[in-house]
Structures are given as C-alpha cells and as structure tokens.
C-alpha cells in the first residue's frame, strides 16, 4: 500500500491538467453570447461530441457496426437500459458466432 513519489507526481500532474479541461468550458462559456451562430454551435455540441466519441468505435469492425445499428433502431422504441442490454447481447452473440 505504498505510493511512489514520482508516480504520485505524474498522477497529480494528470489530475491538475484534467481539472483544467473541466473548468475551461465554464470559463469560456461565461463569455459566450446567448444567441446567434455561437449559440447554434453550442446547442449542437452535445450530439456532435457524443457521435464523435462513438463513431470510430462503431466503425471499428462489422460486429460493432451491426450492434450499433441494432442499438440505433432499438433506442427509438425502448428505454435506455433495455436498449443497452440488447446491444451488449447482440455484440456478445455475434462474437460468439464469428470469432
């Protein structure tokens, strides 16, 4: 149960810079306008970030693509937890069958 000082320095440096990324958005958002193109951009930000995070994962292979498509269709009808369980099950079954 020991902590190496160099390891701790690395952890602390990572933590400080990560916290900076977390408050950076708050700091700049307070100076941003409430309407106009910048507002349109901010409103589009959540779906844009979500899709940017997910798209490469889903496109990383045929099984992921199929499972992603299943989730996309199911999400329109089922609640979140059911959609996720179904998506995970499809991914697991496809891997069982093809890998």
């Amino acid at each position: 149960m020991t902590i190496d000082p160099v390891n701790f320095a690395a952890i602390l440096a990572m933590g400080v810079l990560t916290y900076f990324t977390r408050i950076l958005g708050f700091l700049i958002a307070d100076r941003l306008p409430k309407s106009g193109p910048v507002r349109v951009a901010l409103d589009a930000l959540p779906p844009a970030v979500l899709v940017a995070v997910v798209a490469p994962i889903v496109m990383s292979g045929p099984i992921e693509a199929v499972a992603g498509l299943v989730v996309l269709v199911l999400a329109l009808r089922l609640p979140l937890i059911a959609t996720v369980v179904a998506g995970v099950a499809v991914a697991a079954l496809l891997r069982l069958a093809f890998i």
């Binding site: 690395a10 440096a13 990572m14 933590g15 400080v16 810079l17 990560t18 900076f20 990324t21 977390r22 408050i23 950076l24 958005g25 708050f26 700049i28 958002a29 307070d30 941003l32 901010l42 409103d43 930000l45 959540p46 970030v49 995070v53």
Partner: peptide, 19 residues
C-alpha cells in the same frame, strides 16, 4: 500529463455546453 490534457480536452466542449 500532456496525454491526459489532450484526451480530456473534450471536457472543455462539454463544460461550455453545460455551464
């Protein structure tokens, strides 16, 4: 530290939207 900053830079976008 630099890696953590770059990987987590997306938080700035999220924070700006959530603020």
């Amino acid at each position: 530290a630099l890696m953590a900053f770059l990987v987590n830079l997306r938080h700035a976008l999220m924070g700006a939207s959530l603020s």
